[in-house]
């Protein structure tokens, strides 16, 4: 006989149900990245980056904290690049043990992030010099946040993640409102409402994953 005889014992119905729930939750946690690593780096990037942008280019051309014109956008984009790397690595690391459809989906989705940001960078970079500094900031900021919002929606659709779809809609709407209200306000809105949305979404998604539902 072999060593599997011990656990060949049939479970009771209640045991079976618990076993199924536990095992599925455990497996889901093991094959999905921690949602906090996907959302929180972006929230922190926005909080700090848009915070700086707001302080330098406040509403009505106010300078709340003096700093070089180039600094806030640089901080924002460096932090967003870091967020892109952290969330990308976290996703890819978990995908290592899974082959098949999800692998292709994940790689394509990851590539879309880079391609999108490359397009935004080239386009905004080309017209930046023609605009006043505050409007330049708004152009880069509005485009990048709109793109992130759209990617959250696409990601939510790909993996059936409701939290991601809700966050995408929230960030997208808040971004449009911010751009319409104008420079300064946009930074403030994204640094607070946008970043908070990501923090909440990460928290909710992580709890959902741990509960295994």
């Amino acid at each position: 006989m072999n060593d599997s005889d011990v656990d060949d014992r049939p479970p009771s119905a209640a045991e079976a149900q618990d076993l199924i729930r536990e095992q599925r939750a455990l497996a889901s946690r093991s094959i999905s990245p921690d949602p906090r690593t996907l959302y929180w780096p972006w929230s922190i990037a926005w909080l700090v980056g848009f915070g700086c942008l707001y302080l330098r280019f406040g509403p009505d051309d106010q300078v709340l904290v003096p700093m070089p014109e180039w600094l806030p956008l640089t901080v924002l984009y460096v932090m967003m690049a870091a967020a892109l790397v952290i969330s990308g690595v976290s996703g890819a690391r978990h995908a290592r043990h899974i082959k098949g459809d999800s692998q292709v989906k994940g790689a394509t989705y990851g590539f879309a992030w880079f391609l999108g940001f490359a397009g935004i960078g080239v386009s905004a970079g080309r017209v930046s010099d023609l605009l006043p500094p505050a409007e330049t900031g708004l152009l880069w900021a509005g485009l990048s946040v709109a793109f992130v919002a759209a990617m959250y929606l696409a990601g939510g659709a790909l993996w059936g993640e409701r939290d991601m779809v809700i966050l995408g809609v929230w960030v997208g709407v808040v971004n449009v409102v911010g751009v319409l209200v104008g420079p300064g306000w946009h930074s403030l809105i994204i640094a607070t409402a946008g970043a908070a949305g990501g923090l909440v979404a990460g928290y909710v998604a992580a709890r959902r994953l741990n509960r295994g539902s």
Partner: peptide, 18 residues
């Protein structure tokens, strides 16, 4: 059976096609 139920339950958490 305990062990095989656990195997099947764990695999069922994987998206189809993976």
């Amino acid at each position: 059976a305990q062990a095989r139920l656990r195997v099947v339950a764990a695999l069922s958490a994987l998206p189809e096609g993976d």
